[in-house]
Design a protein around this nucleic acid. Structure first.
Lengths: 216, 216
DNA sequence: GGGCTGTATACTGCATACAGAATGCGCGTC
DNA sequence: GACGCGCATTCTGTATGCAGTATACAGCCC
């Protein structure tokens, strides 16, 4: 028999703020006033501060000493660096998945890949969600929790630049690359899986870098 | 003209606690009582709590809801996972360093590698410090700050298991591997540099895994 | 003696208080 | 009209207060 444990307020605040940042509800650069957030969420400043400290440690917020917190602003160079690390991590995840993924994980991955083809070309938000699910499943299939943790950290950070990539999630090239990654993993070919994953992310890196350059 | 800004208390507390954990002054599993730490450091509980939140987010501390904080205990499986990710990251760092490191960075790396050979076989602490400096310089030479950040995060975590690896930092094999990494980078050979770095870390992974197994 | 129960104590989680720094604005000066 | 200065206001950073839960221990029952 179990009773519902009241979640910690600081956890709830953290979750809420993190999703607000990742979903773009709070734009990069936006100030996050402690009293304001505390008021909106119906809590005191204490748990808000603790959530902000976590977000800063994670790289989603910036704490300017004496001058408050704001949503992290990533420079184009920083975005490229994050993509670069993500490429290496995801290549490793694909390599490990090709070596060790369980039957269930492989089925799930195949299912999610197939789902990518059935999303309306117009529904950008759903495309992003489906893409996220596929990549998350890929990394989970690596069986390495630390790798998974770092991946999600990078993924959240890249959400800060998502508007430069979201329309590419459904392109024929992207779909073909997803399939290539999946097939290499199903075939149990670690090197090919790693190369395919790396190439996929590197292409996004270049794409987003180009768009950020144009935007400036 | 610059004046000394008083550091934030929470930063000082964070630095102090982090080094206490990394240096082994606070052993894995040790309880960290807020009032006790606050008393020792001469501050209130507030900055201590904020430091603990950061350490937990970083994976160096565990916050048990309602039951306080303790120094993170890594299971043998977790240690292996961290090594596995570190191998991938450091391989990537070596690859990038071989491609892009500046003259100054290469000189520094060569200098630190040479220094590894001149440390008394008995001074384990200095061996560990010199090894840390070499690897840090390698990762810095990648030119990727995000990669560097994640590397240091993993390195701090592995400090929790350092006693299983520190005596290997000076072995002939280790020295030969360091030299192989350096030479590949100096030769501008990304693939060879990556492979050498990966092999080096993977060997430590296996070594530490074996010792953890024996210890249990 | 072992185990349960009640109570005292310790510690956390959140709220609030307070001091000091940063920001913005109006006024005066040139 | 532009600039600088000073004050009011806002907000952060740290300390402290308070309620509630976890832990430990003593006493009691069997």
């Amino acid at each position: 028999m179990r009773v519902e444990r009241p979640l910690l307020v600081r956890e709830a605040v953290y979750d809420r703020l993190k999703s607000a940042i990742v979903e773009g509800e709070l734009a990069p650069g936006a100030r996050m006033l402690e009293v304001e957030l505390a008021g909106k969420l119906g809590v005191s400043r204490t748990p808000v501060r603790e959530a902000l400290v976590r977000l800063a440690q994670e790289g989603l917020a910036e704490l300017l000493p004496g001058r408050g917190a704001r949503v992290r602003v990533l420079s184009p160079a920083e975005v490229s660096e994050v993509y670069e690390v993500r490429a290496a991590l995801e290549a490793e995840a694909a390599r490990l998945a090709a070596q060790r993924a369980s039957e269930g994980e492989l089925e799930e991955l195949a299912r999610l890949e197939a789902a990518l083809h059935r999303i309306p070309k117009t529904d950008l938000a759903e495309q992003t969600r489906a893409d996220t699910r596929f990549h998350a499943a890929l990394v989970a299939a690596s069986g390495n929790r630390e790798l998974e943790r770092l991946f999600h950290q990078l993924d959240a950070k890249l959400a800060l630049a998502r508007r430069y990539s979201s329309d590419e999630n459904q392109s024929p090239k992207t779909l073909a690359e997803h399939r290539a990654i999946l097939e290499a993993i199903l075939a149990g070919d670690p090197d090919r899986a790693a190369a395919a994953a790396r190439a996929h992310i590197e292409r996004f890196k270049a794409l987003v870098a180009r768009r950020l350059k144009e935007a400036s």
